[in-house]
Amino acid sequence: MRNNREIGSEFEDTAAAYLESKGYVILERNFGDRKGEIDIIAKDGRELVFIEVKYRRNLEKGDPAEAVHFSKQKKIRDAARRYLYRCHLGEDIPCRFDVVAILGQEIRLIKDAF
């Protein structure tokens, strides 16, 4: 039986392939530390995009996008600041936060989700 990390990694692979098919250039995956993680960091045109991937087999536990609640968003924003700092990028670089919500076999991209 697969653990949650293996399942998550599989769907992050699916999301990365989907994003690349939409023209995104993947820069990094699973960036972070014990304070927070960003699933995928990519470029979409001139914008740097921090992407959270959420998967649900069905709606029993709600829509996957609903799992990116306020406290999760804060952790992602904080991790994005650490990424900008570690890469010597200014906070004035154009960036946004997207969510890839996978429900069963359906993939939904929510640009500028928060």
Rank of each mutant, 00 (worst) to 15 (best):
L27F: 09
A15W: 10
D78T: 11
R46D: 11
T14W: 10
G36H: 03
A79W: 03
S21D: 13
N58V: 00
E52W: 08
V25M: 09
P64K: 06
N3V: 08
I76F: 01
F114G: 00
R46E: 14
I76P: 06
R77I: 06
H88D: 15
E37D: 14
I7A: 07
Q73K: 15
Y83Q: 12
K74R: 15
D63P: 02
E37L: 02
A16L: 07
P94I: 11
R82Q: 09
F31E: 02
I26L: 13
F31I: 05
D13V: 03
L19Y: 04
F114E: 01
A101E: 01
A17N: 12
M1Y: 08
V100C: 05
R56T: 04
I41N: 00
C95G: 03
V100D: 04
L89P: 05
K75R: 15
E47D: 15
P64L: 05
E20K: 14
V25E: 09
E52V: 02
A101Q: 05
I51K: 05
V53E: 04
I76T: 05
K22S: 05
L89G: 08
D98L: 06
E12V: 12
S9W: 05
A113T: 00
A42T: 03
R81I: 04
Q73P: 11
R29F: 08
E6N: 11
S21G: 09
I107S: 07
I76Y: 02
D63S: 09
G23Y: 10
Y18I: 01
E66P: 01
K111N: 06
Y55W: 15
P64W: 02
R57W: 02
A79S: 13
N4H: 13
H88A: 03
R82G: 01
L19T: 01
Y83I: 05
G45Y: 01
E60K: 15
S21M: 06
K61G: 04
K35N: 12
F70C: 06
A101D: 09
L27C: 11
R81H: 07
I38K: 01
A80M: 11
K22H: 13
D92I: 10
R2L: 14
K111P: 10
R29Q: 13
L84A: 12
Y55V: 03
F50M: 01
S21H: 09
D92G: 10
D112T: 03
I102K: 07
R81N: 09
I38M: 06
A42W: 10
A16W: 07
E52M: 00
I41R: 02
H69L: 05
F31P: 06
F31T: 05
A17G: 10
A80D: 00
D98E: 09
D92H: 13
G62W: 01
A80H: 08
K111F: 07
K72C: 00
R77M: 13
V100W: 11
D98P: 12
F50K: 00
F97A: 03
D44T: 01
E60F: 09
N3G: 15
E66I: 07
M1P: 13
L109H: 15
G32D: 06
R86H: 15
E66A: 14
N3M: 12
F50I: 00
I26W: 10
F114L: 02
D98G: 10
D13E: 13
R86N: 15
L109W: 12
L27R: 12
D33C: 08
I107H: 13
L103Q: 02
Y85I: 10
L84C: 13
V68R: 06
I110E: 14
S71Q: 05
A15Q: 08
H88V: 03
S21W: 11
D44K: 15
N30A: 12
